[in-house]
Nucleic acid binder design. Sequence first.
DNA 1: ACCTGAACACCGTTCAAGT
DNA 2: ACCTGAACACCGTTCAAGT
Lengths: 178, 178
Amino acid sequence: VPRNRAEVARDEKVEEIVKAASDRLLDGGYPALSVVDLSRRLGLAQNAIYWYFPTKDHLFVAAVEHIFNEILDKQPCQGPRIDRVLWFVERLSECQDLRTTMRERARSSEVVAAFDRHVTGCLRSMLLRALSQEAPTADVDPLADAVMALCEGALLRELGNAERSDLIRFGYERLVSP
Amino acid sequence: VPRNRAEVARDEKVEEIVKAASDRLLDGGYPALSVVDLSRRLGLAQNAIYWYFPTKDHLFVAAVEHIFNEILDKQPCQGPRIDRVLWFVERLSECQDLRTTMRERARSSEVVAAFDRHVTGCLRSMLLRALSQEAPTADVDPLADAVMALCEGALLRELGNAERSDLIRFGYERLVSP
DNA sequence: ACCTGAACACCGTTCAAGT
DNA sequence: ACCTGAACACCGTTCAAGT
């Protein structure tokens, strides 16, 4: 006898699934996000989720979107430009683990690939805001791309906070000097 | 009746497995590297590989090592320093797909994490050679880290060859400037 | 529209058993 | 030392069936 939840709004049920999925994702990464396991946790049959999400990667994207919403909407703080860049790197580092997973999944899943491009775009324009705020620089686009590459590359290394800041300060100062 | 291959040298059998594994890896990435599938292709029982490799990730590391051997041993070409940097980026881009997989696997597997650190070290010293060749620069270490971050970050973006070269030229020239 | 039961074709890994 | 057969505990996904 199927549970009758037809009276519950679809949005609420979707959100319940997405919330649980993002919890699992934050807890143990992609391996912890199992469609079968998640269904059991929600008290559903192991295939119930497929009514709402066509593939696991669609669910994955929804969960990551849910997690990233607060991060990507943040407005850059005030202060000198180097501080705003370091603030941006902090936002980047919050995304780092999940973006590593996204990059790998994007190779086999077009949904993830598209969402990865979208996230990258959001982060890029976040950096653009941080760079051009208060002191608009001419031709800021190539600069933004270079700083973005520097920051993303720095986050790939397993560095301490101090080492990472030093690396970014070093690179940033030279990148902006005309 | 088990196939009797006790007379064959262990090294040869290991290499046969590693060769087949790296072929699968190059063909379809990590998803194509299945222990079970690989064993069948080699005409072995599905668990035979576990005699040589304790886990799938150990096999993965051996296969990637096999693939990277030629790439990491290459000596930088002659020419102006910017060309040697772009040459280095080409070597990096040859590793790129597998390094994406390695980064994801490194999160759950210490063997992969250790090998990832090793590869990063090799690449870093490859860049160091390219940077300091013919014209040794004082204090080249922080410069190398910044250029490395720039290059690795640039490779994360899905850019055309021309765009990527432009980005790296732009960043490199400013990083080395003063 | 929503959900279940049952199945399919896979995995990585373990272990006792054989030569 | 080397390999197999058989099993374990998982996966993601599909499909017919029920309400």
